[in-house]
Design a protein around this nucleic acid. Structure first.
Lengths: 145, 145
DNA sequence: AGTAGTTGCATGTACATGCAAGCACTTCAC
DNA sequence: GTGAAGTGCTTGCATGTACATGCAACTACT
């Protein structure tokens, strides 16, 4: 694998930026208006719902969602206020905290999941038809290892 | 073009999210530490520097950078404070305002541009070597129309 | 001209996020 | 054991962004 500079990197990245901004915006609007949660909340619920024992350590959740530690503290706080999760002390390490999804959180995730998939697919299909972004979208859909 | 749901959309998008988050983070840190500007400032200077007459209407700049109107008002305000741009009234439409890049802004952009290109290419090369993201990065580099 | 509606931008407010400092607990070296 | 360094999370603060609103200027129609 070469490590050379590529002149095309910048324009390729510009296309990613445009695609990212538009899709995230669509997802945010749909989740907020139809389910009353933001994108970070949705992704947190997703990871929690799919984790073993329905719980994750705060730092692990932060890594998965792509946020910093302090953001996760506050995000889980919001989930807690909404009744979608709660915090549990880690018995083996009393510094540690588990974020645990509740049944209510799992329900909200399940209904939001359909919206998420629909909006995402619809957005990708729209941009796949855009002459500027079409090839990028097609390329992204190539299955990975 | 079909509008069918694709099961692979979600995981494909997850890879885009991971790539986006990491690259933007690297770019932000590099631009902030080496040139004292944020990513939105950099991209605004880029569009202004490449525009005819070195100026853009506020709303046009907002569209190009992918921010809302009020964000651009404040962003150009920051550029103005830093001496990188100023506002000019539009003679033909007195509601309109041009954001105009200064020589100082152009200089800052030129030096930041090298950093941006280096960090971007380096980041893409790193992730191209990642078994999880490699094919996605290669796909993005496919030249478009 | 007069009026109604639209457009371009600025401002008030709310909120999510990052960074740095702090706190509680754990681990390590001695 | 004891003190020092490390770890996991929280909190205070600053920043950037969006949304709602307001104001001024423009446009279309009468």
């Amino acid at each position: 694998m070469s490590t050379s500079l590529r002149a095309s990197d910048s324009s390729a990245w510009d296309r990613v930026l445009m695609l990212h901004a538009r899709v995230e915006r669509d997802l945010t609007l749909a989740l907020q208006s139809q389910h009353g949660i933001g994108l970070s909340e949705y992704r947190s619920l997703e990871h929690l719902a799919h984790s073993e024992s329905s719980e994750l350590r705060m730092q692990d959740l932060a890594d998965k969602v792509g946020l910093g530690q302090s953001s996760i503290t506050r995000l889980v706080g919001r989930l807690e206020t909404a009744g979608f999760a709660f915090k549990d002390l880690c018995p083996s390490d009393k510094r540690g905290v588990y974020a645990v999804i509740t049944d209510q959180g799992r329900e909200r995730y399940q209904s939001a999941r359909a919206t998420y998939a629909e909006v995402l697919s619809s957005a990708l299909n729209v941009f796949a038809a855009d002459p500027e972004l079409g090839a990028t979208v097609q390329a992204l859909r190539i299955p990975q290892s």
